[in-house]
Computed example of a mutant assay.
Amino acid sequence: MDTDIIVVGGGPAGLAFARQFKNSRLHVTVIEKAPLESLQNPAYDGREIALTHLSREIMQKLGMWQRIPENEIYRLRDAKVYNGTSDYTLHFPEPKKARGGATDRLGNLISNHNIRRAAYEEVAQMNNVDLRCGVGVKKVETSTNQAIVELENGDKLTAKLLVAADSRFSQTRRQLGIAADMHDFGRTVIVFRTKHTISNQHTANECFFYGRTLALLPLEEHLTNCVITIKNTHAHELLDMTPEQLAQEAQKMLKGKLGNMESAGTVHSYPLVGVHAQKFYSTRSALIGDAAVGMHPVTAHGYNLGLESTDILAKLILQAEQKGRDIGEVGLLEMYNVKHQLHTRPLYHGTNAMVTFFTTDHAPVKLLRDATLRVSNNLPPLKKLISKQLTG
């Protein structure tokens, strides 16, 4: 074999997975189509990632957390959900510690480019990881004995295991013949930072307005990342605006709850598509990150699930290697599939159902949406269950 594990995709999930093998005897090759410069100095892309306490623990173990500037790790104290024009909120307060006493946050917010840079800096120091950047994958195939990856430059690599981490639109997943449930919400996500005169109280807000959804992710006390989802047919109404006009639009949607708002950066947009693979493995191959599960951003669980996938799969591989077993055997991959599916499948379908419910604007549903928030607010077991999902 040319290497033990080939990882297709050098994004934050692919690099975090490679980092799991520091100080092991396994050799990992990461294939990334983008140039090396994009890994060394990733550009800001507007995405602020909400990280659970479990994700923080995994990132600390991998040395990634320590590489992120302390002043760019933002506290997420609590969260509130609004329906329509009502001021009534479903409130998820900061959680309690196991032995009593409040913590000071539900989780943390970190910019995606900072996570990517931290992952790269850790992997770049590893002698058992090769980064092959600036070249794409042309073809992948697997057999009972090996995985073969043909690159666009004609090179071929063989490995004991192939791992796909090349986005929710993964071509590797398609070539492996793994089917996936793809849910196109028919909406566009528009993200931008704003400064404002009234404190955000380090509180995340999810506002299900009619025709639009606005999420507010608190960074500094007077700096918030705004995430608007809108039907594709109306996206141009916002994308044609200047950054300052967009900030004023957000202020109007919020009825001035954050005071005067102004633009604090660039505007970015993305198609809103959710993905869940029917299974997370095939012959000598596995899916991690968004190639396995690409979540709707409303629960902010995307990268959290990606990190969990790297942690589960890497632990199984390392245990097998220590026992002298085949790291690409079907039993190992099936165990990974079962463990990760148990958490992701109900969360994925539950999130999609919730989003569909809260973005349906027919009159009877509007009333039911409001009633659902009020009932949920008064059911402590349900709120506790949701809070545990939010905090990981």
Score class of each variant (00 low, 15 high):
Met1His: 15
Asp2Lys: 10
Ile5Asn: 10
Gly10Phe: 11
Gly14Pro: 05
Leu15Phe: 04
Lys22Gly: 11
Asn23Arg: 13
Ile31Leu: 13
Lys33Gly: 07
Leu36Val: 10
Leu39Glu: 07
Asn41Tyr: 10
Asp45Asn: 15
Arg47Trp: 10
Ile49His: 09
Leu51Val: 09
His53Pro: 03
Leu54Ala: 15
Met64Pro: 00
Leu76His: 11
Leu76Trp: 15
Ala79Gly: 04
Ala79Asp: 00
Thr85Tyr: 14
Tyr88Trp: 11
Leu90Lys: 13
Pro95Leu: 07
Pro95Ile: 07
Pro95Val: 06
Lys97Phe: 09
Ala98Asp: 12
Arg99Tyr: 12
Ala102Met: 09
Gly107Ser: 09
Gly107Pro: 05
Ile115Asp: 02
Ala118His: 10
Met126Trp: 03
Asn128His: 11
Leu131His: 08
Arg132Lys: 14
Cys133Asp: 07
Gly136Lys: 00
Val140Ala: 08
Glu141Asp: 13
Ile148Gln: 06
Val149His: 10
Leu151Cys: 11
Lys160Tyr: 03
Lys160Arg: 14
Leu161Thr: 01
Arg174Glu: 07
Gln175Met: 14
Leu176Gln: 01
Gly177Phe: 06
Gly177Ile: 06
His183Leu: 09
Gly186Gln: 05
Arg187Phe: 09
Arg193Val: 01
His196Glu: 08
Thr197Arg: 07
Ile198Leu: 13
Asn200His: 13
Asn205Glu: 15
Phe209Tyr: 13
Phe209Trp: 12
Gly211Val: 04
Arg212Ser: 04
Arg212Met: 10
Ala215Ser: 07
Val227Ala: 08
Ile230Val: 11
Ile230Asp: 02
Ile230Tyr: 07
Ala235Asp: 07
Ala235Ile: 06
Glu237Lys: 12
Leu238Cys: 10
Glu244Tyr: 03
Leu246Pro: 03
Ala250Phe: 03
Lys255Glu: 14
Lys257Leu: 05
Glu262Gln: 14
His268Ala: 07
Pro271Gln: 08
Val273Gln: 10
Val273Pro: 05
Lys279Trp: 01
Ser282Ile: 00
Ser285Lys: 00
Asp290Phe: 04
Val293Asp: 00
Val293Thr: 08
Gly294Asn: 02
Met295Gly: 02
His296Gly: 03
Tyr303Asn: 02
Gly306Asp: 00
Glu308Phe: 03
Leu316Ser: 13
Ile317Gly: 10
Leu318Thr: 09
Gln322Asn: 15
Asp326Gln: 08
Ile327Thr: 13
Met335Cys: 10
Tyr336Glu: 09
Asn337Thr: 12
Val338Gln: 15
Val338Ala: 12
Arg345Ala: 13
Gly350Leu: 05
Met354Leu: 15
Thr359Trp: 01
Ala371Ser: 15
Leu373Glu: 12
Asn377Phe: 08
Asn378Phe: 14
Pro381Asn: 09
Leu382Ala: 15
Leu385Asp: 04
Leu385Val: 04
Gln389Trp: 05
Gln389Asp: 02
